[in-house]
Amino acid sequence: MTNKIIFEDWKTLEYAEAWKKQEVIFNKQITRKQNEEPTENNLIFVEHPHVYTLGKHGDRTNMLISDEMLEKINATYYHIDRGGDVTYHGPGQIVGYPIFDLENLGVSYKGFIEKIENGIINYLKEAHGLDTFQLPKATGVWLESKRGHEKVCAIGTRASKYVTMHGFALNINTNLEYFDYINPCGFTDKGVTTLAKVKGAKQDFEKEKSILKGFLAEAFEADLV
């Protein structure tokens, strides 16, 4: 492996603060590219308190609750500049922010999304024996249940000058009740699940983070530093 990915775990952090920290790293890489200096690839893991985010071109009507109800369930809401529609982040969910220079890694934007999906699919297969898959026109990682297609990982990103921002949200021990207040990713005919629900037991969150980062590095043929 010749590529390098700098890994950081921000532990638990409010969404707004994490967004600002992302932008600092993102802007630094953009400046480096403009100055023809070497860039870095950063992978950040974080866990957010209850928050809903709506993508740049998402439909606000997919948020099914009022501002008053948001306050009641102790959640916040942000309309942000990534792709995709509305999603939820909260405790027990691994949120990953890959701030990568795709030219540095030699991958297209479409290839970048596919590599994230494949890394997570391989992690769920090798670490947990689960058969998950990609769906056409439905970004993310899915599995089949008696209830139909259920998403275990959502993905929503953006890129400028081939530098990426935002990322994925993998449900480990996530409270699924919070998805009842939205049409997740704009879908009304598909469900959401968690690793804990599929496995029938709460998972060791820190252990899962440690395993997952290795599969993501492997997907990009990179070493974690």
Score class of each variant (00 low, 15 high):
T2V: 03
T2E: 12
N3E: 02
I6N: 12
E8S: 13
E8H: 10
T12A: 14
T12K: 15
E14H: 14
Y15N: 12
Y15K: 11
A18N: 07
Q22F: 04
E23H: 15
V24H: 03
V24Q: 14
I25Q: 04
I25S: 03
N27D: 14
N27A: 09
K28A: 12
K28Q: 15
Q29G: 05
Q29K: 11
T31F: 02
Q34F: 00
N35M: 11
N35G: 02
L43I: 00
V51K: 13
T53Q: 05
G55T: 05
G55W: 01
K56R: 15
K56E: 09
H57D: 10
D59T: 05
T61E: 14
T61L: 07
I65L: 14
S66M: 07
S66Y: 07
S66T: 15
D67N: 13
M69K: 15
I73G: 11
Y77D: 08
Y77T: 09
Y77C: 14
Y78D: 08
G90H: 08
G90Q: 06
P91H: 07
I94P: 07
G96P: 10
Y97C: 08
Y97I: 06
P98R: 06
P98I: 05
I99N: 04
F100W: 04
L102I: 09
S108C: 06
K110R: 15
K110G: 03
I116K: 01
N118L: 06
N122A: 09
N122L: 11
N122T: 15
Y123L: 07
K125S: 12
E126R: 06
A127D: 09
A127F: 02
L130V: 11
F133D: 01
V141P: 04
W142H: 03
E144D: 14
S145F: 00
R147Q: 12
R147E: 13
G148K: 06
E150Y: 00
V152P: 04
A154P: 03
K161F: 13
Y162G: 00
V163H: 02
M165S: 15
M165Q: 11
H166C: 02
H166F: 02
G167W: 01
F168M: 14
N171Q: 13
N171T: 10
T174A: 10
T174F: 01
N175Q: 13
N175W: 07
N175P: 11
Y178H: 10
Y181V: 05
I182T: 08
I182R: 04
F187L: 15
T188Q: 14
V192N: 03
V192S: 04
K199Y: 06
G200I: 10
K202F: 00
K202I: 10
K202R: 12
D204H: 09
K209A: 02
I211Q: 14
F215C: 07
F215W: 11
L216M: 00
E218N: 08
E221G: 15
D223R: 11
D223W: 00
